[in-house]
Design a protein around this nucleic acid. Sequence first.
DNA 1: TTCCATGTTCCGCA
DNA 2: TTGCGGAACATGGA
Length: 266
Amino acid sequence: MPELPDVEIQRQLVESTALGRRIETVEVRDEYLVKGVEPDELRGRLEGDAFRRARRHGKYLFVETKGGTWVLFHFGMSGFLRYYEDPEGEPEYPKVVWLFEDDGALAFDCRRKLGVVRLVDGPEAFAREKGLGPDALSDALDRQAFREAMIGRRGMVKTALMNQEILAGIGNEFSDEILFQMELHPRTKVSDLGEGRVDRLYDTLRHTLKAAIQARMDPEQLPGRFLLPRRDEEAACPRCGAGVRRIEVSGRGSYFCPACQGEEPG
DNA sequence: TTCCATGTTCCGCA
DNA sequence: TTGCGGAACATGGA
């Protein structure tokens, strides 16, 4: 669920379902996910208030209330939000649930419990404190900023794309997707890209993330030449039909097409 | 039963 | 200093 496009979709969900509605109850059903604040205090701060806007920075979602409280969501590997009015629409592992006065509920579902809900001072302060780089789709990350961030790096492109201190929002799956779109082997080193390919990498990552958001991460709607729904060694490359391969890069399973992206970095 | 999984964090090592 | 590799966290599905 949880790379930048997924988080943006969660943000849009909050925006379209939850804004302006009085929060009657906050149910903390598993306090393991609630960090840095007692469940009672979380309830006290939110009940009676209403959400007024939702913002994203990389893989983090921030929702501000009319009272000025900022709630931070991080989705870990398995978290997502769901809005429902019929109790039957409740997801399988709801950990924190916001119930609105005029009916309807927003649930934070997190099967693997690696997600986080907490109160923060705001997106900018949080990003600064964490040392996060600019959101990968923000205006702050323009071509020049990306060039400067990449230049002089010694590691692999994939590792750099996933480094949240350089740019925020890309994880394991999207780093593979971007490398696939660029036809670069997952172990390609940043130092082997010339300026031209750094610029192309920038364009590719912006396009790829935007296309995924546009398709709402629906496998049926994603561009046909996306590797994303084919992260499987049984699958065929959507570009050339060769077999998709899996290797380990920095300890993460990485899928690529050896025919399009090369058997070896280069 | 074993392996793997989109997240972050921390530690040791080169 | 930078970057890598592995482990840990918690849980469940194939």
